[in-house]
């Protein structure tokens, strides 16, 4: 290395040093500390006492933890594919060259600008069993059915009944897909026009063009949204936390892994246990991300390659 190169290296390092310092202090250190605390009895205020794998052993036999794992996977299993489908469909529709599409794009993007807490409070009212908008829409058709068949169907109390509560949260999540729509739109506009033109000459219809051109061309964008959606849905916290007023929902149906972590850390003073939950959550997300990457490798096409 010449003197000049060394000097360059030093300058370069100095320039990125804020990032390096931030990464070490705010990302690497917390991760390592989490690992250590997850192996100890720790409550923030008293010094951590090393207890080996006790927290993990307790996790394995804690039915409430497993309930939160089930809830989280259930939510992700529906919210993630539905979210991808709805956002992609909206993006394709909003990409049609129609008058006023700017207005529609804005309308669909707007909800994603709303702070989580407002979104949660708004949907709390939408889903209210007695006065909610959704049940007001559902009631007339149900009453008609009741009149015809002599049944006694009533709309559910969405956030009060365990069977329906998670669906309430999934609907709420779908309302905030605007961010993903915008990313898809950017991807859609990058698809070269000449590919469509060639396909049209060959007689391809809309569905064929979508399947053979649009989807392969925007596959990196789909992949990106998939991974972001995956991380987001496994970390679901704010909306159910606010909707249930800090609790776990009826029969703990809205207790997610992140909520249980938070309860243990700040309500039950079991920070070590919370760290163990955090690490498990981290490993789950890491594993699923690697799995998604592996499974999608053959289907994601980068133009640079």
């Amino acid at each position: 290395m010449t003197r000049r190169e060394k000097e360059n290296l030093r300058t370069g390092l100095l320039f990125i040093s804020p990032w390096i310092a931030g990464f070490l202090l705010l990302s690497v250190y917390p991760l390592v500390a989490t690992l250590y605390y997850s192996l100890s009895d720790y409550s923030v205020l008293s010094p951590a006492v090393f207890v080996g794998l006790e927290n993990y052993r307790n996790l394995a036999t804690d039915p409430i933890f497993w309930k939160s794992v089930y809830n989280t996977f259930f939510f992700a299993a529906f919210a993630l594919p539905l979210g991808l489908l709805v956002s992609l469909t909206l993006a394709v529709l909003l990409n049609f060259d129609l008058p006023g599409r700017g207005i529609f794009r804005t309308v669909f993007f707007l909800p994603s600008l709303m702070p989580m807490v407002c979104l949660a409070v708004l949907w709390q009212w939408m889903l209210n069993g007695d006065l909610g908008l959704i049940n007001n829409v559902l009631r007339p058709p149900l009453d008609a059915v009741n009149a015809l068949f002599g049944t006694n169907l009533t709309p559910p109390n969405w956030l009060q009944e365990p069977v329906y509560a998670k669906w309430g949260i999934i609907f709420t999540a779908l309302w905030g897909v605007g961010q993903a729509v915008v990313i898809y739109l950017a991807g859609l506009q990058d698809v070269p026009r000449h590919l469509y033109e060639s396909a049209e000459i060959d007689g391809a219809n809309f569905w064929k063009k979508t399947w053979h051109i649009t989807l392969p061309m925007i596959s990196p964008v789909i992949y990106f949204n998939l991974i972001m959606g995956l991380i987001g849905s496994f970390q679901v916290f704010a909306v159910p936390y606010v909707m249930t007023e800090g609790g776990d929902g009826p029969e703990r149906s809205l207790l997610f892994m992140a909520t249980y972590l938070y309860q243990n850390a700040f309500d039950y003073w079991s920070m070590g246990y919370a760290c163990a939950i955090g690490l498990v959550l981290f490993l789950v997300i890491l594993g699923l991300t690697l799995l998604a990457t592996g499974l999608s490798a053959r289907h994601v096409h980068y133009e640079g390659n």
Partner: peptide, 10 residues
């Protein structure tokens, strides 16, 4: 049970 929940939601 459902009547009570619905009543309380109001």
């Amino acid at each position: 049970a459902r009547d009570l929940l619905s009543f309380r939601d109001g």
